[in-house]
């Protein structure tokens, strides 16, 4: 028996109200498409070819976001596993609630904390460990590392909550069947859940990478790119926040445009891949539901 294959085959002819309703909804969906085109067009209009300095900033973005993602992924996946499968049943709900709360903490607050607590410590550590390096090199390494530490803390809750959604979407029957066969929680995860969700988990990590690459305000604050004795920015998003005043004073927005367009493309690629992978697991049509 084939079910109705979606609303396109609505059995009754549309009334006038149906037509009006559809027109309004279509206008809203169209507005989203127009907004996307407008954003992309505005960025392309403002941009010019990137200079070597801007290319170096994109390199910095990749390094800092990459380090943060590598550090955050295992922690976040561990937290997701705790929340869905491995944690004691009393611990799961509070941890899930706290992780969810952490995803709405504003980036500026992380930036403030990074500027006060993370960045000075990383600077001091680099000063003692890398004393043979030149000052410029050391400052660059210290900046990238403190950005990476802060980004790790910022994206870990996001990755954890996305990964938990992926794990929850695994077919419940499979979990029950494996329990019935006497599997431990870890057995069940490793042999039953993981094979069904690994691409989705990878997608959650990719979403975290995209968020880390696009984070500007927190990175700029934590690595000291704003204020009186501003340091040179290290990532593209940080440079956009840092270059705002110069662009405003000179009226030349093309450098920001180049950075913005590059970031737009980088984060779009990472996020679209991540979204597609996560949604494929979450929206999988399961027989019997």
């Amino acid at each position: 028996m084939t079910p109705l294959a979606g609303p396109r085959e609505w059995p009754a002819p549309p009334s006038n109200r149906d037509r009006a309703f559809r027109a309004v909804g279509g206008a809203l969906a169209g507005a989203l498409a127009v907004a996307f085109v407008a954003v992309a067009a505005a960025l392309v209009n403002h941009a010019r070819g990137p200079t070597p300095h801007e290319l170096a900033l994109f390199g910095g973005t990749l390094i800092a976001a990459g380090m943060a993602t590598v550090a955050a992924a295992p922690i976040a996946l561990g937290v997701a596993l705790y929340v869905v499968d491995l944690g004691p049943s009393r611990g799961r709900r509070p941890v899930a609630a706290i992780v969810e709360l952490m995803t709405v903490v504003p980036p500026v607050v992380y930036g403030l904390w990074g500027a006060v607590a993370i960045s000075p410590r990383v600077d001091a550590a680099c000063a003692s460990w890398l004393s043979a390096w030149s000052d410029a090199e050391r400052a660059r390494v210290a900046g990238l590392v403190s950005a990476a530490v802060m980004l790790t803390l910022m994206i870990a809750p996001t990755v954890a909550s996305q990964a938990a959604q992926v794990l929850r979407a695994a077919p419940p029957g499979a979990r029950e069947a494996a329990t019935g066969l006497g599997g431990t929680r870890w057995d069940i995860f490793l042999h039953v859940i993981l094979p069904r969700t690994r691409w989705g988990l990878l997608g959650a990590v990719a979403l975290g990478l995209g968020r880390a690459m696009g984070e500007g305000v927190a990175v700029a604050l934590a690595t000291g790119c704003v204020g009186q004795d501003a340091r040179a920015p290290l990532t593209a998003a940080g440079a956009m926040v840092n270059g705002l005043e110069t662009a405003r004073a000179s009226g030349d927005w093309r450098s920001l445009g180049a950075l913005g367009l590059g970031l737009f493309v980088m984060t779009l690629a990472s996020n679209m891949i991540g979204r597609a992978l996560v949604d494929r697991v979450r929206n999988a049509r399961r027989p019997g539901t």
Binding site: F36, M240, M272
Partner: peptide, 13 residues
Amino acid sequence: ALSEVPAVVIGLA
């Protein structure tokens, strides 16, 4: 696509 555009880029656009 738009829901994950970085805030700085939204600001610039």
